[in-house]
């Protein structure tokens, strides 16, 4: 479903973030993306969510080359890709409910259907009772889960997560990973960028390892020089 085909990305000034990256993720697969900070994890997520465009090579989703899409089509691509951000990126002066409802409002949902879907998403992350709260009043883990609910509320076929457990304790991390597994089990493709190697080792999913912009390992366990 998702395919990187000889993708390189260099930034003005000559910094090469990615060098000839090749990989595929099948429909319904769950994959970890790991590497040191600066290895290019974020760049890969940015290319998929069309925040950046590749310098050379092709990023394809369902055999559609993303770089051939027009600027006006970018919003529609992003509706198919749920993104969970490391720093949550919530609207701080809106309630939890409003935050989660945002993708639905953008797609034109109204009334009962919208409320039903928001409640379903909040229920999955266990925050149904906090829907009237402002994000500021929630803990870091709860804010992260609001971000997850927002990413999945419109049932995207592809889910990206950038360091979703970045500053959470192990127990919370496990909870959040279980939420991802639950989505994966209903057929959603999940790509999780993380440097939490212990977590990866426990979960035993396919892992892509990046080092200085190159793919050095694509296996069930992270490569040895990472561990």
């Amino acid at each position: 479903m998702l395919q990187f085909d000889h993708v390189s990305k260099s930034y003005p000034g000559g910094f090469v973030a990615l060098e000839r990256i090749n990989f595929r993720i099948a429909k319904g697969e769950m994959v970890f993306l790991t590497g040191h900070s600066g290895a290019g994890k974020s760049t890969i997520l940015k290319l998929i969510s069309m925040i950046e465009r590749p310098s050379t090579g092709r990023v394809m989703i369902n055999n559609i080359d993303l770089s051939r899409l027009k600027r006006s089509q970018v919003p529609y691509v992003r509706r198919d890709v749920g993104i969970i951000f490391q720093n949550h990126r919530l609207l701080m002066n809106h309630t939890v409910f409003d935050n989660v409802a945002l993708p639905l409002v953008i797609e034109g949902f109204t009334g009962k259907e919208m409320v039903k879907r928001v409640h379903a998403a909040l229920d999955k992350v266990g925050l149904l009772d906090k829907q009237r709260c402002l994000p500021e009043t929630l803990s870091g883990g709860e804010q992260q889960r609001v971000g997850i609910a927002r990413a999945v509320v419109n049932k995207p076929p592809l889910l990206l997560a950038d360091e979703p457990t970045g500053n959470l304790d192990p127990e919370l991390s496990r909870d959040i990973m279980q939420v991802f597994e639950a989505f994966n089990q209903v057929g959603v493709s999940v790509l999780v960028a993380t440097h939490d190697l212990g977590l990866i080792a426990r979960m035993r999913y396919r892992t892509l390892t990046l080092k200085q912009g190159r793919m050095i390992n694509d296996d069930l366990i992270p490569s040895r020089d990472q561990v």
Partner: peptide, 12 residues
């Protein structure tokens, strides 16, 4: 910041 978030979740 708010506009960036809206763009990220697919607002035109």
């Amino acid at each position: 910041a708010e506009i960036e978030v809206m763009k990220l979740v697919g607002a035109t």
